[in-house]
Design a protein around this nucleic acid. Structure first.
Length: 696
DNA sequence: CTTAGGG
DNA sequence: CCCTAAG
């Protein structure tokens, strides 16, 4: 028997177009690391720890690499450095380099190792509040999550640790689900294409049984299962740690987020119940598409192993190309995001732009399964180094005699589904970690971006909860994106595709690093948890962040995009001929991802006003430290800007104000403070010159 | 890196 | 929010 599963999972639009300006992003990152890392989360530590375990290396779980999760000013800086260090290490030296495959670091391994990690973390002195949120597990499974109760297994296995304070049970019950929306690929050259990494994997019966068996752990570890990617029979070893998992993870579309406090709301908007064939949550909109895709793809599946060079070895990649007929339609879809404002004006929401990330990355629910890639054309002008993924259908956009370059961009593509079960207090970094793995699988060269409710989440250290990704967050709100990896933004034309797709700076034959598709991979990530009670000034804000997060209309918008994309399978693709060519100098380049918009909450405004009243208007850095030290995403410039707008807001009539209304009382204080400090400043200016003058 | 301002 | 000039 075989499980005919189509694991089409979309990390909501793997958007590739933007090439971040190194300088700026670097600068910002630097700032964040040093100034605002005291939030109590250190995803990379976690990662490193896990990776270390998986790789059988020592020291990763040592206190020093995981410690000082929470710190004040100085501690934060130190920690920031550490984080950085860890980040580099984990990314370059461990998990994400070729070694991860060869050495078996993979999601699946993570799972099996979770317990270990748990323990080690719990022993860490510094982690106290931040860690130990009990089983922090990320379970990635094939769409048949129901059948493969990974999560459960997982939890059980995890609780072995002494610290599993938070009963796994609770977590499980309170888990919410989310769905990653999908992605689309779109080419610059007016040709849209879909690259489908489907693994309509078939799982042999015994396998299935084994997996679902309650003995999961044992079986899993000792019985490497075999997944057949398709009829063509691409065999994938499902072995777990320490055996290298060279397969493409079967990813599920649901994200279950456990919520410890709130058990009642089984905020599971999406019943975590087992899904049918598609394996995805019972979302209406998914149905049609999935079916469509499934049926169409199934046949084509795996044919391309040989043709789809982009796929290293066992990886099967499906490329679907939209015919011209569909083009217009798609085109309009593509542009959709930009018009969205008008179309879907859901005024009630405070952040009206949530539907669209500033860069045009639209992760709004309206995006159908394929995620309507929405980057503006110009925005994407940025060279797209979309690794080997950019496969084109033979004959279409191939190298031309004179102009040997075919330029296009990949807007998104689909990858297997991913089922994630992770506590809310896990960090964004954890999520990204998952994607990192996937990225690596895809060949790397891409950077992971996370989009939540249409907004880019840049702060890896923020917890899911803080980001608003809680047990009851709206489905579809969360999506991942792939961005060109700055490091290897450009590739020589015609260069071997494989060389282009190497993840990170480590040159490696793609084949050696690319796992095959059609495999179940699961990950267990132990994540520190920040203590809500000890939270300082901003903890509430962060929370409110989530509360005020706009999302109501998501459901309403769903249908809109449900069936918009007819896809036509692309036939053979010659990867060799399809080297990705980064477009030269993105003109104006929206290359840089604009930060997500995060409206200030009243609480934040309150804190800001208070701080300014005390410190004045010329000491934003101090204001930041004083009132927003824990709000990593609020830079002093942000605060200054906010103050600017506050003053403006206070001066205009209430009718003209927009967004979440700020209490008049606060606005009054703003004016008062502003007047006062302006005066002070004036005085200073008056004095300074005269004094110096006198001195002279 | 911080400030201050314009965009 | 972004970008820059300035200090």
């Amino acid at each position: 028997m075989v499980l005919q599963k189509r694991l089409d999972y979309g990390f909501n639009g793997y958007q590739v177009p933007h090439i971040p300006r190194a300088t700026r992003s670097a600068r910002r990152r630097g700032i964040n690391r040093r100034k605002a890392d005291g939030d109590g989360t250190c995803p990379f530590d976690l990662l490193a720890t896990v990776a270390g375990k998986l790789l059988g290396e020592e020291g990763e779980s040592s206190p020093d690499s995981t410690g000082s999760v929470r710190g004040k000013e100085q501690g934060a800086i130190v920690k920031g450095e550490k984080v950085k260090e860890d980040e580099d290490r984990s990314l370059k030296e461990k998990s994400y380099t070729e070694g991860c495959y060869e050495r078996g670091f993979f999601i699946s391994e993570l799972v099996s190792q979770a317990p270990v990690v748990n323990r080690s973390l719990s022993e860490l002195p510094h982690v106290q509040n931040d860690t130990i949120s009990g089983p922090a597990s990320v379970t990635m499974s094939s769409d048949c999550a129901e059948k493969f109760p990974f999560a459960k297994q997982f939890v059980n296995g995890e609780s072995s640790g002494q610290n599993g304070n938070i009963s796994s049970k609770t977590e499980r019950e309170a888990s919410g689900c989310g769905v990653f929306s999908s992605c689309t690929l779109d080419t610059e050259s007016d040709k849209q294409m879909k690259i489908e990494l489907s693994n309509s994997a078939k799982v042999s019966t015994y396998k299935e049984a084994a997996i679902s068996s309650s003995k999961f752990p044992d079986i899993w570890d000792k019985k490497p299962s075999t997944l057949v990617t398709s009829d063509e029979s691409v065999k994938l070893s499902l072995s777990t740690y320490p055996a290298p998992c060279k397969s493409f993870p079967l990813i599920r579309n649901d994200v279950k987020l456990a919520k410890k406090d709130d058990d009642e709301n089984s905020g599971c908007t999406q019943p975590s119940t087992p899904n049918k064939a598609s394996g995805s949550a019972p979302r209406v909109r998914d149905q049609p598409i999935k079916k469509l895709l499934a049926s169409k793809y199934r046949e084509e599946n795996l044919k391309s192993d040989d043709e789809g060079h982009a796929n290293s070895g066992r990886k099967t990649m499906h490329v679907y190309y939209n015919r011209n007929i569909d083009y217009k339609h798609q085109r309009s879809q593509r542009d959709f995001p930009f018009k969205k404002r008008k179309v879907f004006k859901c005024g009630s929401l405070s952040n009206s732009d949530k539907e669209m990330s500033t860069d045009g990355i639209c992760s709004s629910p309206t995006d159908d399964l394929h995620g309507i890639a929405s980057s503006s054309s110009k925005a994407s002008s940025g060279g797209c180094t979309a690794a080997g993924t950019s496969v084109f259908n033979g004959g279409r956009a191939i190298l031309r005699p004179g102009d040997s370059h075919v330029k296009f961009r990949i807007k998104s593509f689909r990858v297997p589904e991913l089922f994630v079960d992770i506590p809310e207090n896990a960090t964004i970094g954890s999520l990204k970690a998952l994607m990192e793995a996937v990225t690596a699988i895809l060949g790397g060269g891409l950077r992971i971006g996370l989009v939540f409710q249409g907004k880019k989440v840049r702060d890896d250290n923020k917890t899911l909860l803080q980001t608003g990704i809680s047990h009851d967050y709206k489905l579809d709100a969360l999506g991942f994106s792939l961005e060109p990896n700055p490091v290897q933004t450009s590739q020589p034309l015609g260069a071997d595709c494989r060389s282009c797709v190497l993840p990170y700076e480590t040159p490696q034959p793609l084949t050696s690093r690319c796992p095959s598709p059609g495999t179940v991979v699961h990950t267990g990530i132990q994540q520190g948890r920040s203590d809500d009670h000890t939270g300082t000034s901003l903890s509430n804000f962060l929370e409110s962040d989530h509360d005020s997060a706009p999302s109501p209309h998501y459901a309403a918008l769903e249908k809109i995009s449900a069936n918009s994309r007819a896809l036509v399978p692309l036939t053979a693709v010659n990867a060799e001929a399809l080297s990705v060519v980064p477009l030269r100098k993105p003109k104006r380049s929206e290359a840089t991802q604009r930060r997500i918009r995060r409206p200030f909450s009243v609480a934040e405004v309150e804190a800001l006003v208070q701080a300014v009243e005390k410190l004045g208007t010329g000491r934003w850095r101090d204001v930041k430290l004083r009132a927003f030290d824990n709000a990593k995403h609020r830079t002093y410039v942000d605060l200054k800007d906010k103050w600017k707008t506050l003053v403006h807001t206070a001066r205009i009539s209430p009718q003209q104000r927009r967004g979440e209304p700020v209490p008049q009382e606060l606005l009054d204080r703003v004016l008062t403070a502003h007047a006062y400090w302006s005066q002070q400043q004036a005085k200073q200016q008056m004095k300074q010159p005269s004094e110096t003058y006198l001195l002279l």
